[in-house]
Structure formats: C-alpha cells, structure tokens
C-alpha cells in the first residue's frame, strides 16, 4: 500500500531532530546571553544616575567642581549627610532635610489615607445603597479624570486662597484627595464581593455602618494596601500643588525643595553637590523602598487601577 510510510521515510526524522538539536544548542545559549546583556544594559540605564548621585556625595565639593562625577569613593558621605539633614538651605533655617522629610511624610500619608477613606465611602454609597442619584454621583466623580490639576491650576489656586487655606495642611492635602481612580477601583471590588454577604449581615441585624466597618473594610485589606502604596508614592511626589500652596519654607517638602536645591547650585561660591545630592536621594528613597518592598501589591494595584 502506497500510504504506509516506509522505514526509509521515517528513519531520517530522528536524525534530523538530533542534528537540529545539536545545531540549535549553542544558538539558544547565545540567545540567552543576549537577553541577559539587554537586561543588564537596561538595569544600568536605570541605576547609573542614582549611583552617580551617591558617588558625588562622598567626595569634596571642590573636586566635583573641577572634575565632576568619577568612580572614586571618598569619605565625605557622613559629613554631607549631616549637613543635608540638619543645615538649612536658606536663611529662614527651616529648610533642613529633616524638616522637609517630615513634611513629605505628612503629605504622603495624608494624601494616601485621605484618598482611600473618601474613595471607600463614596464607593460604598454607590454600590450598597438604593440611591436615586447613584449613577449621577458616579459620573460626577468619574468625569474628574478629564480635569487634571494642571489644566485648572490658576482657578484652583484662587479658590484655595479665597478659602484662606494657603500655607495650611488642609489646603495642601484636601484639594488633592478627590479621586476617580480610587473610587472606581473600590467600586469594582465591592461589586465583586458576593451578594450573600450583605444579605447574611442584614439577617444578623447588622446595619449599614456596622457592615461597612466590621465586614467590608476588613475584607478589602489587600485592596487597601495596594491602593495605599500607589497613593503614598503619588502623594509624596506631588510637585505643582505644594509649590503653589506652601510658600512658607517651614512647609516645604523634599520634592518641592528640589528646585531650591538646584537654584542653590548656581551661586557664585562652590556649589554644594554633596549636600544637594543627598537631599535628592532622600527625596526618592522612601517611595522607592515602598515600591521595591511591596512590589507584588504595588504591581497589582497599579495594573488593576489603570485598566
């Protein structure tokens, strides 16, 4: 029969495979090496600038002025750190690293906690209540996505000024904490919580506040953690609004202070790169640590909110 494959037809197949395997083995290794080289190049591209900042903070400022960053590690790190933390950049004596770090913390925590609290409250109201204008409220909140701070900065500033909130923590934090993304995120999560839960709670006689605090909030722990990480980083890194609202130096945050730091480098005397670089590192360290250590939650929160 013609269709039965003969041995001669079949025989080469394993041989071919073997030959291909032999030929391909080194190629796979090369491919793997290229992968690693690309990734290492990428990692260096990301890492090099911060290593440079660190290196520059260990050598004397006079040397930087002459030769810039190098590969030499000096002994000035601790004196520079001390200067960055305790010595003020300006005459007021209030723009010390320590002070700005505290202000950044207040902003980061206030921003994250504020956003989460009011977003959860709003999402709870929209999802769990028979509310006639629930849809309207949802759309009102959602449409704020169309109005980033930058496009309404001048009138927002004026309102805050009229309310007498310039240079207050309230004025700095409250206008920023309305959040369409966080509300939407919690709404989606609440919708996925089984219906039976609220039914059971009601049968057991739990009212809406009791259900929210004792059942729903504890249930949302992971969501809250993910959201907190994202929002802490986001709040810590705020720049435009603090620059407008906090003009008293005692309220400067680290990120906001970067501009003053840069301006300080322009003076006629020796630019203090050692101290400035440490302040810059201080400005990125807490959010970076949060992102690195809580990576899994962070990635989950980020990819879930934005989608």
């Amino acid at each position: 029969m013609a269709h039965i494959p003969t041995t001669s037809d079949r025989a080469p197949a394993p041989a071919r495979l073997l030959a291909a395997g032999r030929r391909r083995a080194p190629r796979i290794r090369w491919g793997g090496l290229v992968d690693h080289l690309v990734l290492i190049a990428g990692a260096l591209f990301m890492l090099a600038p911060s290593l440079m900042l660190l290196q520059m903070s260990t050598i004397p400022d006079e040397q930087i002025m002459r030769t810039g960053p190098s590969f030499q590690i000096g002994d000035r790190f601790l004196p520079n750190l001390d200067k960055a933390l305790n010595e003020s950049m300006s005459f007021s004596g209030e723009t010390t690293g320590r002070n700005m770090f505290r202000n950044s913390m207040i902003l980061g925590f206030g921003f994250a906690i504020g956003k989460i609290v009011i977003a959860m409250m709003a999402a709870y109201a929209i999802v769990y209540f028979r509310l006639r204008f629930a849809m309207l409220a949802f759309w009102l909140i959602f449409t704020t996505l169309l109005l980033p701070l930058e496009v309404r900065i001048v009138p927002s500033y004026e309102i805050t000024q009229q309310l007498g909130l310039l240079n207050t923590w309230t004025g700095l934090i409250v206008p920023l904490i309305a959040s369409a993304t966080a509300t939407f995120f919690f709404r989606q999560y609440f919708l996925s919580v089984p219906e039976e839960l609220v039914e059971a709670a009601r049968i057991d006689g739990a009212g809406p506040i009791r259900f929210f605090l004792d059942i729903l909030v504890p249930l949302s722990r992971t969501m809250v953690a993910a959201m907190f990480i994202i929002m802490f980083v986001y709040g810590w890194n705020q720049y435009l609004w603090p620059t407008m609202i906090s003009t008293e130096e005692g309220r400067f945050t680290l990120v906001q202070g970067i501009k003053q730091i840069t301006q300080g480098l322009e003076g006629g005397h020796i630019p203090e790169f050692g101290r400035s670089n440490i302040l810059a590192i201080l400005a990125v360290l807490p959010p970076v640590l949060v992102v690195v250590f809580f990576q899994r939650w962070f990635v989950k929160g980020l990819t879930d909110t934005d989608k």
Binding site: A122, Y124, R130, L131, T183, V198
Partner: peptide, 25 residues
C-alpha cells in the same frame, strides 16, 4: 448596585458628601 442594597436615605448622601464637596469646590 447590589440587589440587597440598604434603604437608608441619608447615610449614602453623607458618605458621598466629602468626595462630592471636594470635587465641586
């Protein structure tokens, strides 16, 4: 919205109030 939603009339308004106030203002 959940089918078994609470029928409390003023609580949801109160819950939405902070968010909506900030948004309007």
């Amino acid at each position: 919205m959940k089918r078994a939603g609470f029928a409390n009339p003023w609580l949801p308004v109160l819950l939405l109030l902070p968010q909506l106030t900030i948004i309007c203002l």
